[in-house]
């Protein structure tokens, strides 16, 4: 047992080494020093308080999306639509803010309503994917992908149409909201402790939901064997839908935070790809909630640290995406290898 564990760890370490090795090869072929690149990325993400705060700004929506995805993955669902659910959360949050632009209500209440609205928006959008699957027979991957495009198109329509700045038609986004609509940020930094708390509470709740409740157990049963779960009396489609609702609400919260604490307006790429990145994090941690925080933090750090590459080395920052992808690929590959070894062992 212990030996198998050690073997698993060794293989994961090997996967990491291979991922970094592959990216190093790319760097060398581009004539750049891998060591210098990694160094820049490292200090670019934790080199100062401000940089680490920027990492946390990326970490919050990423962790929220990941937390949601853990639920749908547990139920055996590939919720590719998470990206659209983030977008829809941002749209509804913006909409709620717009409703209260002239209102005399306390800002704290308006912000809470806006974030709640975003969560509902994300949940409704996710439920659509679920309903399409349950009643329309549309696989959630295709339904989700389709709805992602719809959500993005809707954002662009709103920005160029009903919510445009006066006299302007530009991708730059809607008019920024007044300062009091912003989630309170730490002094001189862009991170909101409220947003961070929201994300941490979410992952803790999801952890206990999946590990320590009957609901989580049933959800996993549905995920492991849909038919068997059904035969054992679990209302499987209802559990699928619940998982979509939970994931959508958390993804919606990610979108809400993007509007309420980061961009203070709606922009076309408001989701910043955190939904898709969350899918990678969830796969990398093999759907175990306990690893969500460190790995999401690592991915956020790579995103922020890579900004140094074009400044310092004239390299493209998309290198961080290559590294993230390589990590996921090699870890999955090594997982396959591990399973083969386990099977072969007597």
């Amino acid at each position: 047992m212990l030996k198998a564990r050690l073997k698993g760890l060794a293989l994961q370490a090997l996967a990491m080494a291979l991922a970094f090795g592959a990216v190093s090869l790319i760097l060398i072929s581009a004539g750049a020093s891998p060591l210098e690149a990694y160094q820049n990325m490292f200090f670019g993400s934790v080199g100062s308080t401000r940089k680490f705060a920027e990492v946390l700004v990326a970490f919050v929506p990423l962790l929220l999306a990941t937390a949601g995805l853990l639920v749908t993955f547990s139920a055996g669902l590939w919720n590719i639509g998470v990206e659209g659910q983030v977008v829809m959360g941002a749209i509804v949050t913006t909409w709620v803010y717009r409703l209260f632009l002239e209102s005399a209500l306390p800002p704290a209440l308006i912000i809470s309503l806006a974030i709640l609205g975003g969560m509902i928006g994300g949940a409704v959008w996710a439920a659509l994917t679920g309903l399409l699957k349950t009643f329309g027979g549309v696989n959630e991957i295709f339904g989700g992908l389709g709805l992602n495009f719809v959500a993005t198109a809707w954002t662009i329509y709103l920005i160029f149409g009903p919510w445009k700045r006066p006299g302007v038609a530009s991708m730059s986004g809607t008019m920024p909201f007044p300062d009091e609509f912003s989630l309170p940020l730490l002094a001189n930094l862009r991170i909101s402790p409220w947003a961070l708390a929201l994300a941490l509470i979410a992952i803790v709740i999801i952890y206990f939901l999946l590990q320590g409740t009957y609901f989580g157990l049933k959800l996993k049963a549905v995920g492991k064997n849909f038919r068997a779960a059904y035969l054992l009396g679990i209302p499987t489609w209802r559990y699928s839908l619940y998982s979509f609702l939970i994931c959508g609400a958390l993804a919606g919260a990610a979108g809400a935070v993007q509007v309420a604490a980061v961009y203070h307006r709606l922009i076309p790429s408001i989701s910043s790809g955190y939904g898709y990145l969350g899918l990678m994090v969830a796969m990398l941690i093999n759907y175990q909630a306990i690893w969500a925080i460190p790995v999401a933090l690592l991915f956020a750090a790579l995103n922020i640290g890579s900004i140094q590459l074009p400044i310092m080395m004239k390299l493209d920052s998309s290198l961080s995406g290559v590294l993230q992808g390589a990590l996921v690929l090699f870890v999955l590959l090594m997982e396959g290898v591990r399973q083969k070894i386990v099977k072969r062992a007597p």
């Binding site: 670019g44 100062s48 401000r50 940089k51 920027e54 700004v57 990326a58 991708m171 986004g173 862009r190 980061v262 961009y263 922009i267 076309p268 790429s269 989701s271 910043s272 790809g273 955190y274 995103n303 900004i307 140094q308 074009p310 400044i311 920052s317």
Partner: peptide
């Protein structure tokens, strides 16, 4: 720093990137 727009540098804002240059 070039390609400073939300499509090419998702998740960033110009003021944040300016601070990178100040650093």
């Amino acid at each position: 720093l070039d390609k400073v727009n939300p499509a090419d540098r998702p998740g960033t804002t110009p003021d944040q990137l300016a601070e990178e240059l100040v650093a």
